[in-house]
């Protein structure tokens, strides 16, 4: 019952990964007792379960995920929200107003209009229905300031780092508030646009070098160097 890969090897769809007593994990499938890759990515094996960390994928909604989306349409009793996924999400008016919604009293476009950005959580989603969002938790709702950037959704765990080490380091070094949408959209809010810009370049750097080791240390160093430079220019 052999495996046909080395740890962290780059594989393409259809590549035979293991045969026999193995289970298909993420981005793999089982056929006739053989495990094949489904996507281009890096393989890993854990307790007989073969996983592929995809290098290219799109966001698939999951209940409880924090996402950042843009309102694309104001409807009769809610909003349609683009969450950069194959499915558009719905946000119900009663959820935002936190009281019964009466069409004759409330004008929805005054609360949120097309183009507004929101931080929300996925309240429900399954194969047959589009995802529904909720903003009835602290910290969720309309975004009023800050900068938005996008990364590939598969890279979000790398931006978070082990137990949040990477993201807390960036927050500390740049004095920015960062909200990571699991759909690959990131909101950076800082005291000055320069701080935000610095945090964005750092995250871009992580996206580009996401498969290297010791990345947290290098990003820390990079941020420290960058922080010194602007001060020199002022003098």
């Amino acid at each position: 019952m052999p495996t046909f890969f080395e740890k962290k090897q780059l594989v393409t769809p259809g590549e035979l990964l293991a045969e026999g007593d193995y289970l298909p994990g993420d981005n793999t499938y089982l056929e006739e007792n053989k495990v094949y890759a489904q996507r281009i990515g890096l393989v890993d094996c854990e307790n007989k379960r073969v996983n592929v960390v995809a290098l290219r994928a799109f966001y698939v909604p999951k209940v409880g995920d924090l996402v950042i989306g843009a309102v694309i349409e104001v409807g009769f009793n809610g909003w349609t929200v683009d969450v950069k996924s194959p499915y558009t999400a719905l946000l119900r008016a009663s959820d935002v107003l936190s009281r019964p919604f009466k069409p004759q009293n409330d004008e929805l476009s005054q609360v949120l209009s097309a183009g507004d950005l929101i931080v929300a959580k996925i309240a429900s989603y399954d194969r047959a229905h589009d995802p529904q969002l909720t903003v009835s938790e602290p910290g969720l709702g309309k975004i009023t300031r800050g900068q938005i950037m996008r990364v590939t959704p598969t890279k979000i765990p790398r931006v978070i780092g082990k137990k949040g080490s990477m993201i807390s380091m960036i927050k500390q070094e740049t004095n920015c508030q960062i909200i990571l949408g699991l759909n690959g959209v990131i909101l950076v809010t800082g005291k000055s646009p320069e701080d935000e810009e610095l945090a964005i370049t750092a995250i871009r750097k992580i996206e580009e070098e996401s498969h290297t080791t010791g990345l947290t240390d290098r990003i820390t160093q990079f941020l420290k160097e960058q922080k010194v430079k602007p001060e020199e220019k002022v003098e």
Partner: peptide, 11 residues
């Protein structure tokens, strides 16, 4: 299709 990240059985 593979580059778009669509899950595939094989190329």
């Amino acid at each position: 299709l593979a580059d778009a990240g669509i899950p595939m059985r094989d190329l």
